[in-house]
Amino acid sequence: MPPKGGFKKKALSDGTSTPLTPSLAVQLSYLHQPRPFKNPNYSKNVNRRAKNLKAVLTQERERERVEREARRLEREHLMKVEPDAASRIPEEVPSYTTVEAPPSVLPHRHLCDITGLEAPYTDPATGLRYHDKSVYEIVKGLSAGIAKDYLSARGVNSVVK
């Protein structure tokens, strides 16, 4: 127990005036409720905390690559032994990376970065798209940082020149 907390606790136990009613959070806490169903001999997997999102996804991608390669080899082998069987082997097993939707090939609609209306114009200085003259007045008055924020809302991260 840290010394700060210890001091506090002492002060509280001395205070005899009002009995402490447990706060709502204390009532809702289930820290000390019995958990008989848990295996006491289980020790946590070392991997449990070590991996972040990036590591997990990289591992997944790598594993998938290896699997695909193995499948290709197998198929080639099977083709040699028994040509008819080739079509019976599935090409792809869906995985976390393959189910990802492909990039869009449809043309993007240009929207005003400020108002969200249709944007026929682009400001060459900031790269912001704008709807009309009155919005351009605003665009002209934006500082470089704010203009960058507007761009990043649409996912354009300008390169510092």
Binding site: L106, L111, S152, G155, V156
Partner: peptide, 12 residues
């Protein structure tokens, strides 16, 4: 329908 407008390069 077009995630690209929010900077996500993906089909909608």
């Amino acid at each position: 329908f077009s995630p690209a407008m929010a900077g996500v390069d993906s089909a909608g």
